[in-house]
Amino acid sequence: MSERSDQGDLLVVRGLVAGYGAAPVLHAVDLTVPAGTIAAVVGANGAGKTTLLRAISGMLRPLAGGVQLAGEDLRGTPVEQLVRRGMAHVPEGRGVIGELTVDENLRLGGLWRRDRADAARALDEVYQLFEPLARRRRHLGHQLSGGERQMLALGRALVGRPRLLLLDEPSLGLAPRVVARTMALLRQLRDRTGLTVLLVEQNVRSALSVADQGVVMALGRVVTTAPAADLRDDADLRHAYLGF
């Protein structure tokens, strides 16, 4: 396990403008995630949450602004190099490859690593963490249930031992019990390994319950950044942007 590093900001986003075609979806977004913390980006449908994650991981080329990971500028870094810098992105819909087996999906997450022994150790750890996956190693991805796919996507990211985990709507389509378990796991990973998480969620309640920091987005802008606990308790803000 990597030592826990609380000092400094792991992810710094400055003036990020991005979108599809000519019209930007994100308008000069600023965001800072300290190392070893969980940040939750919440907001209505179409607020630009998914676009934000895609622009951070380079799947979408930013039109302006920049992203720094542990002080390193990521501009011009090819997407396939980001795992090597310690960033894992679990995309919307989770990106489990249905034609590959559970085991192949998981091994894929560590294939880029030079340290083969540690990649094998990380794979074993993920199987211990997600018992149901260990029982279904030879099953194809598309044979899994929604909850199992969630585990597989998360596990595959963890096999790469990331410093920063980008999670897009982990609660989507899952039973509340499964969502609660996922959120508890994120907190556990943060505490045990110093993992930093940037989480995008429609499910505001569960996202703010696990996060240290809440980021409220509306129409492609960051409206408010505050400790998650404060956001949970701020009735005006909840009514205005989060609808509960």
């Binding site: 190099q81 795992v83 992105h89 990106g95 880029w112």
Partner: peptide, 11 residues
Amino acid sequence: FAPEVSRLLGV
């Protein structure tokens, strides 16, 4: 099978 996801996984 999944070019975008594969790139995210370093392929």
